[in-house]
């Protein structure tokens, strides 16, 4: 009996989505279509509750300053407090960790040649808490423990798509050798097209985003070869966050000789604040 990765979720983590939920604005006309598209995913996760989630995200200059810039930072802690990003901490529950699973992943993944940074104390910003809100709504406690994996996508160079896909494969191997009967999901977050800086800020590219969703499902290895410049040029300077989705995709069965994943749900909406918001839910049949 061992743990297994049963599904992967891909979603934008736009802070304004969290703010809309925190302030009870989800019924306003500009937010209704976005949140309506999340309903099938929320129903699915209610019907298929994970025992733990490996949550891939990036910190936005909150837990990590420029003092140290870990490329892949794995959270080892028992709990993570939501960060105050300058507008006050989000009124969401403390994020519970899974120290035993995290320690096992660290042991396994580092031995598979990935030089992870291990973090025993950190806060988690909207990159981590907004996906939890999107999928689980507004519970008093988050329904399962989380293993956060923070990826540097703020200071270039960020890890390549190829490296991200391979890390996902290594995480799959790690989870499957954990001797506990656990239903584990892996989530890749961030994106889709958006640019938050300079005169080109506000860039949105739906054609790129739809292409990315299609290839993530059907051609992940080919997609992982896409160079950074294509993300930057086509999806905006912050669209590079999408490389993190490849980590979650790498953990699916088909990249380990198994069957192709099944598309459970897809959603795309423009805009969420400055960003194109996308979602894909895949499970392993």
């Amino acid at each position: 009996m061992s743990a297994r990765i049963t599904a992967s979720v891909y979603t934008s983590h736009v802070p304004a989505i969290g703010v809309a939920m925190d302030l009870g604005k989800t019924e306003l006309p500009n937010w209704v279509p976005l949140f309506a598209g999340y309903e099938p995913a929320r129903q699915w996760i209610t019907d298929n509750p994970p025992d733990a989630v490996v949550l891939v995200y990036n910190d936005h200059g909150n837990a990590f300053s420029l003092e140290m810039i870990p490329t892949f930072a794995l959270g080892m802690a028992a709990a993570y407090e939501p960060a105050d990003e300058g507008w006050g901490a989000r009124p969401v529950p403390t994020v519970p960790g899974h120290p035993e699973l995290a320690a096992h992943i660290a042991q396994s993944v580092i031995q598979q040649d990935f030089d992870l940074t291990l973090v025993n104390e950190m806060t988690v910003d909207h990159g981590c808490t907004v996906p939890l809100s999107i999928m689980f709504g507004q519970p008093e406690e988050w329904p399962c423990p989380i293993v956060p994996l923070a990826v540097n996508v703020v200071q270039y160079p960020v890890p390549s798509g190829r490296r991200c896909l391979a890390l996902g494969q290594a995480i799959r191997g790690a989870v499957e050798s954990f001797d506990e009967d656990l239903n584990v999901q892996i989530w890749g977050t961030g994106g889709m097209s958006h640019q938050l800086q300079g005169p080109r800020a506000g860039l949105i590219n739906p054609d790129f985003d739809h292409m990315f969703l299609d290839r993530l499902l059907n051609d992940p290895v080919g997609l992982s070869e896409m160079p950074h410049i294509d993300y930057v040029r086509e999806a905006g300077s912050e669209g590079i966050e999408l490389v993190m989705w490849l980590i979650a995709r790498g953990a699916m069965a088909d990249l380990d000789g198994g069957p192709a994943p099944r598309e459970v749900h897809r959603h795309y909406h423009v805009p969420a604040s400055n960003t194109a918001a996308g979602m894909l839910v895949l499970d392993n049949p």
Partner: peptide, 9 residues
């Protein structure tokens, strides 16, 4: 890339 500064090392 116009109107864009990449924050590199």
């Amino acid at each position: 890339v116009p109107g864009t500064t990449i924050f590199d090392a």
